[in-house]
């Protein structure tokens, strides 16, 4: 079993491998087999060449739109990001105002309290991933084996994931209303006199946002887990039942180890997803109060599109890129080491 986005990484490494080997082989061929090639009759060679050329042209035409799109929209901009990270430049100023400042932007980042806070918040936010996974796997086992109306449950728990984050954020904003919101009214009626003011309180704002993020993500993890569970052979459970194993024993010794590739996938994609959280912050808290919910992407957005500091924002983008890149590499190494197949 192999996950799609892990598949992308593995495919990449295989290609690197292939290209390296192929390069060596071609060099060898050029040296050794040259005389043999000459023996092929001219006619055959000509025909073969024309077929090969046709294949090349066809191939190029099929992949050209994607290639151009990806180069213009992703490849060129990311290269530009790495270059601009070493510049001091404002949006409104012309290109002639651009100054090269070396590593100054990165040095400034270290002293930038909001940036440091963003990195810390990003790190704390990663906690949402294991919590989501635990809830999701318990639900997945229950829905997969112990209930009627499976389809209803899948749809119900998937609803937050499919809904627009903007609308969800607006709803939760009202639910979290400090004095009159339904959540605090319920808490007060239960006898809690001073319930937290949630997104208005710097100490609770990040937790509130994390709770909503978990609520949104559960559906996705659930669907993936159910798919993972269905690939476990039924015979394993039947054999365990014959030996008198209880539900917990089966879960601990059969289910958990066998869904470990799924868990691993969810862990990695979940962590990468936390680095991309933007809508929720933008609509719900705008990074506040007192920068308590600022995150890397939000800080990047504010620096670039509100403060218009392009160079500095690019430096943040480079850091963001490096974080995600590092996780992707760790994912590939970890895939080999920790996952039981």
């Amino acid at each position: 079993m192999q996950t799609l986005s892990v598949g992308v990484v593995i495919e990449l490494l295989q290609i690197i491998n292939y290209l390296l080997l192929n390069g060596v082989r071609q060099m060898k061929e050029n040296m050794d087999i040259q005389p043999a090639k000459k023996r092929i009759t001219k006619v055959k060679l000509k025909k073969k060449n024309s077929i090969e050329r046709n294949e090349s042209i066809a191939g190029a035409l099929f992949v050209l739109p994607m290639l151009i799109g990806v180069s213009v929209i992703v490849l060129m901009p990311i290269i530009a990001t790495f270059i601009l990270a070493f510049a001091d430049w404002k949006f409104v100023a012309g290109w002639d105002q651009l100054k090269w400042v070396g590593f100054q932007n990165f040095k400034d980042l270290l002293g930038d309290k909001v940036f440091v806070k963003s990195v810390i918040n990003n790190a704390i936010f990663i906690l949402t991933v294991p919590i989501t996974m635990v809830v999701a796997i318990v639900l997945a086992v229950i829905i997969d084996k112990y209930v009627y109306m499976k389809d209803y449950f899948k749809v119900a728990f998937f609803m937050p994931y499919i809904s627009s984050v903007v609308a969800i954020a607006v709803v939760w904003q009202v639910l979290f209303h400090p004095s009159q919101g339904p959540i605090n009214q319920v808490l007060m009626s239960l006898g809690i006199e001073n319930p937290p003011t949630w997104i208005a309180d710097p100490n609770f704002a990040l937790i509130s946002v994390m709770l909503i993020h978990i609520w949104i993500s559960i559906g996705f993890s659930l669907i993936i887990y159910i798919a993972g569970l269905q690939s476990i052979p039924k015979e394993l459970y039947e054999a365990a039942e014959m030996d008198g194993a209880n539900a917990w024993y089966k879960f601990r010794n059969i289910t958990l180890p066998l869904v470990s590739p799924t868990s691993f996938f969810l862990l990695v994609t979940g962590i990468i997803a936390t680095f991309k959280v933007f809508d929720l912050i933008a609509v719900l808290t705008a990074g506040g109060p007192m920068h308590s919910t600022t995150m890397l992407v939000w800080h990047l957005y504010k620096t670039a599109f509100i403060n218009l500091e392009i160079g500095y924002a690019s430096a943040i983008a480079v850091i963001l890129f490096l974080f995600v890149f590092l996780i992707t590499i760790l994912q590939w190494i970890g895939q080999k080491k920790w996952v039981n197949y």
């Binding site: 992308v8 294949e55 090349s56 066809a58 990001t81 601009l84 991309k276 983008a317 480079v318 963001l320």
Partner: peptide
């Protein structure tokens, strides 16, 4: 099947590593 195919596919796949927000400003 064309010789540059592997290279080009490599380029396309490599862009998958880029988080969308990292290329936002350019």
């Amino acid at each position: 099947r064309f010789p540059a195919g592997k290279w080009l596919f490599f380029i396309v796949l490599a862009t998958y590593m880029v988080p969308p927000q990292a290329s936002l400003v350019p």
